[in-house]
Design a protein around this nucleic acid. Structure first.
Length: 634
RNA sequence: GCUCAUGUAGCUCAGUGGUAGAGCACCUCCUUGGUAAGGAGGAGGUCACCGGUUCAAGUCCGGUCAUGAGCUCCA
């Protein structure tokens, strides 16, 4: 019986059972496919090009250009890196080494961390190993054989991994040259396919990410099928560094963090504070339009409050130590929820009033471990654009859907297009009834589906008190930061005894949705800086137009134009220093000011300005009205 | 918090045991110049902090603090 294999590029074809994807490639006339393929996917399962096919099915070839292909490629590079390390340091024990979004890493149990020189030596050894042109060989062992095999090699970590696998399952081992590694596979057929490799950095990492375990040393690397792509990637890394909000924050004088004040506490400088003001104004207006009530609450509250909320029991290690006043303990608030609930509970509510939406730009303080602080992205004092929606079960879906639409609209207004959405569902340990969880999860998922948004499900990733939707934005180093979070809370309404009177004249417990759309102003600002590389959208840019007189003789004219522009609602400054035009233009360009208006005797006489757009250059002469028109269309 | 690295002028950085440096920024003066750096001069540092070794420490050693890359956690 011949097998029927469907290949997207080729169509349906018949083959002898046991034929491999590599052999099939030799029978078909598609040189490009043959040349590029590094692994295959058969009926949805990734396999080696050398894996014999035993049933009918669909065969997809993967090259470095597909996501899955890249993963295989980088995983193979990680294997070669481990081999190089074992060649250079036979006493080192290998652990795990997966492909990641950009490249791969491998964790090693070694006494000393890897130095720069060692990294270079490992890279050189990798290149040698790649040149050898030996193939990757797959072997399948029984559970016991695998344990014996790795015991012989004294690879304790591998044994630990095998012990956790079901013992009736075959265990695959890939060997290249003298180095064998426990590995599910697949691998590229020959390491020689790796044409360019670079080890980027090394750092400590706990075995299995658990700080109770031994600290291992991790090496990160990247590999490409040609040198040009590697060069491009390295250039891209340099470009990303230039967008880093910590660098731009200094260069553009937006904010600082001062040792004398404390780590993770942000000082917003005038230009940063102006942007924050614009964000806040826009945010408040939008919230009022969307039916929210703005409230304000204090920064500290009594210990009893945080006992009731459960924060002292469950969140204590993230809270600053209490302050004692008149025999009472007060805590800096790590969240705004109890205060919002107190506002709600200050009076009785009828179902007719719901939904109630309380919004606040609420500043909270959290004790974050020193090692995790990061510029504006991870701080100890930050202002959440927080709100709590208190509603009935019937109102749930509409509220959630509106929230999602609202959130995405806000983010898009700031220029964000590339968003990652996650739906986090019920974890093992949780509070609240199943029915409530189901209703809430369903409303979240339906909202996502109805918006046609691409999202991923984070199974069991919800908080213990409710499911949630998170929206993340990537920073300049490709790390994702959570901004929007829309989460249900089945815990606090119970703890604080929230109620409303229903149409049946009975008391009911409302549903509560806790949400932050920008997340925190600090983190949001950080992502905003990086996303735009400091070139903020025109409406947010601190100085929109810089007036540049050609000489002191036209300084007065420059000031007059500046005043007129300000009256017209634009943020205009004038550079009146005794410097040459070229110098002032250069400075304005570096400060990322979008428009420059150069004025000399000619402009003064004609009552015009010579407009110049950042990065583009001279736009020509414009009358005042034309200038206003041009700017207002930004 | 853990591992490693780093900490010198406002910023970016040089300085490998023997009198603290550069460029930019800043101040003063000259220059009034037409689309990305005009010229001269000046001021500015307890070399993160504390301790140790040494005749002598920015430099070597230890500790503390901070920052960075990760681990973990989260807005």
């Amino acid at each position: 019986m011949e097998l029927t294999i469907t290949i997207p590029e080729i169509g349906e074809k018949q083959f002898e059972p046991g034929i491999t994807p590599a052999e099939i490639l030799r029978t078909i006339e598609n040189k490009l496919l043959s040349l590029k393929s590094i692994a295959a996917e058969f009926n949805g399962k990734m396999i080696d090009l050398k894996t014999p096919l035993k049933e009918d099915g669909e065969l997809i070839y993967h090259s470095f250009e597909t996501e899955k292909g890249k993963e295989v490629y980088w995983h193979s590079a990680a294997h070669i890196m481990a081999e190089a390390v074992k060649e250079l340091y036979p006493q080192v024990k290998v652990t795990i080494g997966p492909a990641i979004d950009e490249g791969f890493y491998y964790d090693f149990d070694k006494n000393e961390p890897f130095s720069e020189e060692e990294l270079a030596a490992i890279e050189t050894k990798m290149k040698e190993l790649i040149k050898s042109k030996l193939p990757f060989e797959r072997k399948e062992l029984s559970h016991q054989e695998a344990i014996d095999f790795f015991k012989g090699l004294e690879e304790d970590y591998k044994i630990e991994l095998i012990n956790e696998m079901p013992d009736n399952e075959k265990i695959s081992v890939y060997t290249h040259n003298k180095f064998s590694d426990l590995c599910r596979g697949p691998h590229i057929p020959y390491p020689a396919k790796i044409k360019a490799v670079k080890l980027l950095k090394s750092s400590g990492a706990y075995w299995r990410g658990d700080e109770n375990n031994k600290m291992l040393y991790r090496i990160y690397g990247i590999a490409y099928p040609n040198k040009k792509e590697l060069r491009e990637y390295l250039t891209e890394l340099e470009e990303r560094k230039k967008r880093d909000h910590r660098r731009l924050g200094k260069e553009l004088d937006l904010y600082s963090i001062n040792d004398d004040i404390g780590p993770g506490l942000v000082l917003w400088h005038p230009k940063g504070a102006l942007i924050r003001h614009l964000i806040e104004s826009y945010w408040k207006e939008e919230h009022l339009n969307a039916g929210y009530d703005l409230i304000n609450t204090p920064h500290i509250g009594k210990a009893e409050l945080w006992k009731t909320s459960g924060h002292i029991d469950f969140y204590n290690e993230s809270m600053f130590a209490p302050i004692e006043v008149e025999g009472n303990e007060y805590y800096l608030k790590p969240m705004n929820c109890p205060f919002h609930i107190a506002v709600y509970n200050s009076s009785k509510h009828s179902y007719r009033e719901l939904p109630v939406r309380y919004a606040e730009l609420g500043t909270v303080y959290r004790y974050e471990r020193s090692g995790v602080l990061h510029g504006l992205m991870r701080v100890r004092g930050f202002t959440q654009d927080d709100a709590h929606i208190i509603c009935t079960k019937e109102q749930l879906y509409e509220e959630v859907e509106n929230l999602l639409i609202f959130s995405i609209r806000l983010l898009k207004h700031f220029g964000f297009e590339d968003l990652q959405l996650y739906l986090a569902t019920k974890p093992e340990k949780c509070v609240g009834e199943c029915e409530a969880w189901d209703a809430a999860s369903e409303s979240l998922e339906t909202a996502l589906k109805n918006q046609n948004m691409h999202y991923e499900i984070d199974e069991g990733g919800g908080a213990f008190y409710g499911p949630k939707i998170d929206i993340k934005i990537k920073d300049a180093l490709s790390r994702s930061w959570q901004c929007t979070t829309i989460q249900f809370d089945f815990n606090l309404p119970d703890r604080f005894g929230m109620e409303y009177t229903g149409a049946d004249n009975k008391s009911h417990r409302p549903y509560m949705v806790h949400r932050a759309l920008l997340g925190s102003l600090e983190r949001f600002f950080g992502t905003l800086i990086e996303y735009h590389g400091g070139d903020f959208p025109f409406w947010l840019t601190p100085v929109q137009v810089m007036l540049i007189p050609v000489s002191d003789a036209t300084a007065h004219y420059a000031e007059r134009v500046r005043s007129k522009l300000r009256k017209a609602g634009f943020r205009a400054e004038a550079d009146l220093r005794s410097e040459k035009v070229g110098y002032k233009i250069r400075e304005a360009e570096l400060k990322k000011i979008p428009y420059m208006a150069i004025v000399g005797p000619r402009e003064e006489e004609e009552n015009t300005v010579s407009l110049r757009k950042r990065k583009e250059g001279d736009l020509g002469s414009f009358s005042f009205n034309e200038t206003i028109y041009k700017l207002s269309r930004q």
